[in-house]
């Protein structure tokens, strides 16, 4: 079973906020209790801090993976790295986080589990639910870190999202924070979110039977969206969906560059040579 949302990000401090935005999108989509969602974001932030500060050597660009699920009452989140396992690297005093991270995870989650193998990194799995709710058991309890998984850090925020109502809130929130981080003016930030909403509304129709793969990277003051793997002809179909009804205009005009390319996906399997829609949105 795949998670409702899977994220792959470079293990950098600035990307922990991106994870929180994706979790907020998950909470919005499932109408999660605000206090529970707050606890999810705090505990997951601490698990991500552990990856960012401890998992990799300073010279190493590491990978941070997050899988998140919810059933509307509870949530389960798994944070995974592929670094040196449970032996943290030596870190500067000013970077230390007081060892408060683990107690926060323990207190705020209903249950948590830390698994590690020295050659495959560490997994922290957390389940969040009201104390009297038993309907959300961990699914990954027997799962080991995936040795066959690509572990190179991506350049982008790579997301794999279950088709349906989850795609829009997750994609638009991640788009907004990346655009804000790239110093987009408000009007262009709004344009980027409009485009991501249009993608989110229709992508499932052109990714038959699979989760929706969206990669968003901030590249020299631009946001680069890569959507796929799409069905054959899906890129042009998706572009056609960006027409604004009654106006005879397309949201494509907000985009600086559009390409259809073929390639592989880091996040989806069995996709060799599949079609991708690539769009670049600049600051001005």
């Amino acid at each position: 079973m795949t998670a409702a949302v899977s994220l792959r990000l470079p293990a950098r401090p600035e990307n922990v906020a991106v994870v929180r935005q994706a979790l907020t999108g998950l909470g919005d989509a499932y109408d999660l209790d605000a206090d529970l969602l707050g606890d999810v974001k705090t505990a997951v932030t601490e698990a991500c801090n552990n990856v960012v500060l401890h998992a990799y050597e300073e010279s190493e660009e590491g990978l941070m993976e997050i899988d998140a699920d919810s059933d509307g009452i509870g949530a389960r989140v798994l944070v995974r790295d592929f670094g040196g396992g449970i032996q943290p690297r030596s870190i500067a005093v000013e970077e230390r986080t007081l060892g408060l991270g683990l107690p926060l995870i323990a207190t705020l989650s209903k249950s948590f589990n830390i698994r590690g193998r020295s050659d495959l990194g560490l997994e922290v799995e957390m389940v969040f639910a009201p104390s009297d709710y038993d309907g959300f058991d961990p699914l990954h309890d027997e799962r080991a870190p995936r040795a066959d998984h690509p572990v190179d850090a991506p350049q982008a925020a790579e997301m794999l999202i279950q088709p349906g109502p989850l795609v829009a809130p997750v994609t638009s929130r991640v788009t907004a924070i990346l655009a804000a981080r790239a110093d987009f003016p408000l009007d262009r930030l709004a344009d980027a979110v409009l485009v991501s909403d249009a993608i989110a509304a229709h992508a499932s129709e052109y990714i038959s039977g699979r989760d929706v793969g969206v990669e968003i990277s901030d590249d020299e003051g631009s946001l680069l969206f890569r959507i796929g793997p799409l069905d054959e002809g899906g890129a042009h179909g998706l572009l056609g969906e960006m027409e604004v009804p009654g106006l005879g205009q397309s949201l494509e005009r907000l985009v600086d560059e559009v390409n259809v390319e073929r390639g592989d996906s880091a996040v989806a399997t069995e996709t060799e040579g599949a079609e991708y829609l690539v769009m670049r949105i600049g600051k001005s």
């Binding site: 922990v16 929180r20 974001k41 705090t42 932030t45 601490e46 801090n49 230390r96 986080t97 007081l98 408060l100 991270g101 926060l104």
Partner: peptide
């Protein structure tokens, strides 16, 4: 609206 343990460390 949100602080993590890194900020708590700054306070201490």
């Amino acid at each position: 609206t949100f602080v993590d343990s890194s900020v708590l460390r700054v306070l201490l």
